[in-house]
C-alpha cells in the first residue's frame, strides 16, 4: 500500500501544483492526449472500480428488489456466518492447499526445465522442445480440463492403462472421483499447461550469464553438474527470489477456471475453493450478500499478501511490483 500511496500522493501533488498554475491550461494543451485515453479509462472505472460500491451489500441482507439503498443493514452478520460455516472453512483450506502445491510444483518444474534447456547445445532440438512445451499455455482451460479428464479416465485414460500395464493397479482408479487426488491433479495439470511458459523468464535470465564464469569453473575442474549448481543457479537466484515472492500474492487464488472445470460432486470436498464456493453456493443459490462478504474477505487478504510480497521484494533487490 505504501508504495502505491506514495505514488498517488506525488501524483496528486503534481496535480495540485498544476492546478495553482495552469491545470486547465495543461488539460487544454494536452487535450488530444486526454481524448486518446480518457474514454477507455472510463470503462476501467466502470468495470473495475464501480463494483466496489456493491461491497455495501456485504453488510446488508440484500435483496435485488430493494436494491443497495433499500436493503436492511445487518452489520457484520454475514462475516460472522462465514466463519461459522464449515463449508467456507473447508474452502479456505482447499484454496491454500491447492495454491501452495501449485506454486511449489510450477516453480520447481519451471526452473528444472530452464536448466535442462540451457544445457542443450543442439539449437534445433532446443527450439523444438520449447515450441512444443509452450503450446498448452495457449489452449483454454476448458480444452486443458477436457484433456485432463480424458487422460485420467478410469476406463481408457492413458494413466490408468499405463499403471495397469505396469501391474501397479488391477483396475482403473477413478482419479476425478476421489477428493484425495484432487490437489495433486490441479498441481500437475497446472505444470503440464504452464511449465514451458514459466521457464521463459528463467531461460532469459540464463542467457545473461557471463560465459567466463563457466570457463573459470571449468578451469577449476568443475564438471557440468557442478557448474550448474555453482554458476547457473546462483546467477539466476535474484530472478528465482522475485518470482517466488510474487507468488505469495497468489496464495488466496487457486485459479477459478481450472478448479471449477475439474470439480464435480464426488470431489467437491477438495475442489471447493473460495471462488468456486462463492460462485456455486452464494451466487447460484441467490445468497448475494453472503457471497459478497466472502469476496471482500478474499480480496482483503489477497491485497495484504500482495503488499507483503511487494515489501519483501523491495527489501531483496530494491524493486517492487508497483
Amino acid at each position: 500500500m505504501k508504495a502505491l500511496s506514495t505514488q498517488g500522493q506525488t501524483g496528486q501533488g503534481a496535480r495540485r501544483l498544476g492546478k495553482k498554475k495552469s491545470f486547465m491550461r495543461l488539460a487544454y494543451e494536452q487535450r488530444q492526449l486526454l481524448v486518446l485515453c480518457i474514454p477507455f479509462l472510463l470503462f476501467v472505472l466502470v468495470f473495475n472500480y464501480l463494483p466496489v460500491v456493491g461491497w455495501t451489500m456485504a453488510f446488508q441482507n440484500f435483496s435485488p428488489a430493494k436494491g443497495i439503498f433499500g436493503s436492511d443493514f445487518v452489520g457484520m452478520a454475514n462475516f460472522v456466518e462465514a466463519f461459522n460455516d464449515t463449508n467456507f472453512l473447508n474452502a479456505i483450506r482447499n484454496t491454500l492447499s491447492t495454491s501452495f502445491l501449485k506454486i511449489i510444483f510450477s516453480f520447481f518444474s519451471a526452473i528444472l526445465l530452464a536448466v535442462m534447456l540451457n544445457e542443450v547445445r543442439i539449437i534445433a532440438f532446443k527450439r523444438t522442445v520449447q515450441t512444443i512445451s509452450y503450446l498448452p499455455y495457449f489452449v483454454s482451460w476448458v480444452v486443458a480440463s477436457n484433456i485432463v479428464y480424458m487422460v485420467l479416465s478410469p476406463s481408457d485414460g492413458i494413466i490408468n492403462i499405463l499403471l495397469m500395464k505396469m501391474g501397479l493397479i488391477s483396475e482403473g482408479v477413478p482419479f476425478m472421483g476421489e477428493p484425495k487426488y484432487f490437489y495433486m491433479i490441479i498441481a500437475l495439470s497446472n505444470v503440464w499447461k504452464n511449465v514451458g511458459w514459466n521457464a521463459i523468464i528463467y531461460l532469459s535470465a540464463m542467457t545473461g550469464i557471463d560465459q567466463e564464469l563457466y570457463e573459470a569453473a571449468a578451469v577449476d575442474g568443475a564438471g557440468r553438474i557442478r557448474r550448474i549448481l555453482a554458476v547457473t543457479i546462483p546467477c539466476i537466484m535474484p530472478t528465482i527470489k522475485i518470482m517466488l515472492v510474487l507468488q505469495i500474492g497468489h496464495l488466496m487464488n487457486a485459479g477459478f477456471e481450472h478448479v471449477y472445470l475439474l470439480s464435480n460432486p464426488s470431489n467437491i470436498s477438495a475442489s471447493r475453493t473460495i471462488d468456486v464456493y462463492v460462485y456455486t453456493y452464494a451466487m447460484k443459490g441467490g445468497r448475494l450478500s453472503y457471497g459478497t462478504a466472502i469476496g471482500i474477505f478474499n480480496s482483503t487478504v489477497s491485497i495484504a499478501l500482495i503488499m507483503i510480497s511487494n515489501w519483501v521484494s523491495k527489501k531483496i533487490d530494491g524493486y517492487g511490483i508497483f
Partner: peptide, 28 residues
Amino acid sequence: DFFLRKVLTPFLVFTMYFSGGIIPQFLL
C-alpha cells in the same frame, strides 16, 4: 510530459491486483 501520467498509471495498474468480486460485478 503527460500531466496526469502519475495519477492514471497507478489507477490502471491497481486493477491487476484487485477485483470487486463476481457478485457485485454481475449486478453492475
